[in-house]
Design a protein around this nucleic acid. Sequence first.
DNA 1: AGGCGTGTTGCGTTATGTGCAACACCCATT
DNA 2: AATGGGTGTTGCACATAACGCAACACGCCT
Lengths: 254, 254
Amino acid sequence: MSQTVDRALSILPLLAEGPADLGQVADRLGVHKSTALRLLRTLHEHGMVYRQSDQRYRLGARLFALAQEAMENLDVREIAHAHLVRLNESCGHTVHLAVYEENEVLYIDKVESRYPVRMYSRIGKPVAITVAAVAKLLLADLPEHERRALAEKLDYPMYTARSTPSAAAFLQELATVREQGWATDLGGHEESINCVAAPIRGADGRVVAAMSVSAPNVVVTADELLTLLPLVRRTADTISGEYSGRTPVKGTSA
Amino acid sequence: MSQTVDRALSILPLLAEGPADLGQVADRLGVHKSTALRLLRTLHEHGMVYRQSDQRYRLGARLFALAQEAMENLDVREIAHAHLVRLNESCGHTVHLAVYEENEVLYIDKVESRYPVRMYSRIGKPVAITVAAVAKLLLADLPEHERRALAEKLDYPMYTARSTPSAAAFLQELATVREQGWATDLGGHEESINCVAAPIRGADGRVVAAMSVSAPNVVVTADELLTLLPLVRRTADTISGEYSGRTPVKGTSA
DNA sequence: AGGCGTGTTGCGTTATGTGCAACACCCATT
DNA sequence: AATGGGTGTTGCACATAACGCAACACGCCT
């Protein structure tokens, strides 16, 4: 829509791959060096881009700060956090909170396992959408057509033998999940890791977030993990209640 | 420099404060609604901005992903992490890793205290630059003129009675820190919290990051915390060694 | 010294972004 | 139902503001 902004923003993912100098940026954008320079300068002024000592450009600090601030303003997160911590204290495993946004599912909070073996995941990181338990819950609640369209568009990487293999299988799984009101991922992302998840709903019943408990086989078996399901669901319901009870909108004045 | 990009980027911090609708954005930018709309659309296409169900705009998922990716590409962080965890395991307190960038100091990694009382801080959040122990180390290593210029430009908020009160006092403190090769913050940010910190250096001796151990008075006294100094310094030195041995690129100046 | 590879600047051209005004829409209110 | 104020959206004529160029400045290597 806006060519200049479009180009400027295209620089960011490019720099996310690693530092680059002016020439490289200009080339990959397909513009003149002088143009790239002006764009980079503007990005720099806003702190989105940083110039390291060797003159190459990196993503800048403001980016972190922005992501940070945005995250803290998510009200589901704020409400849920204390409950996630409590759940972690009572079961000891890693607890995640995730939301759906624009064809992606991403973690917005995480409480680390107390066991030495930890899962790799990071707040802000997009989730393996076709297999994660939280993703299933979030997608299962999408309107029919949107869900179907998305399912067709996705890739179905076989992380393990138990990964969801196809759109058809995925839609089937989503139907089950929607009906039962909870979801699992039993070794579908990493062979030895299992998760159980439950949905958090807003006042209108729509799923606004999902939470999960994850643990590796070496700590508890899948069956043992499933015994936590009632606790997870109860926690999710508590959060739902608190979330929908509260004033849904925040202050609009500035 | 580039007006359009400048305006577009100005939208982001604005949205970081909370969701806003088209009119609000246009007003605060001082542009016509149609202009704001085009900018927002471009931001949207790049996933930097998300349109929630009530039509208001929020910061988008790509922003998190970018911040995430950028963070993971910081090689100091990658190298340091395991050591930070180990230090945390041996002393139990909160461990931070911070870098300096463009007049700001920010945390890029954190390992939580094992004690129930935890500090408030977050990865990506800018640090209280005039009092934090890690900030002192990072600023102490700046070239003379830059350090002086920055010190003059800063505010010196009195978080507590022990906060650094003025540029002069700050520069004095930085001189001490530079000489001794480590730093503390004894209740300068929050009355009851103390920190000890040590620098991480690149191959050329320049300080590239700083790490600290923090604990509240209720857990250990300042004196007890100081007994950890040798351990902290040793850890920092180990990281320095690994960092400068490894990366063949970077820091070829001087 | 020379030459190459950077990043940087000023400038004329025109594509590009702009504000306007009219339109479409939703929802409260009467 | 009809009205009216509040949104977000579109098309267009105009001139601003972004573009590429070509020349320059600087550091680095031979």
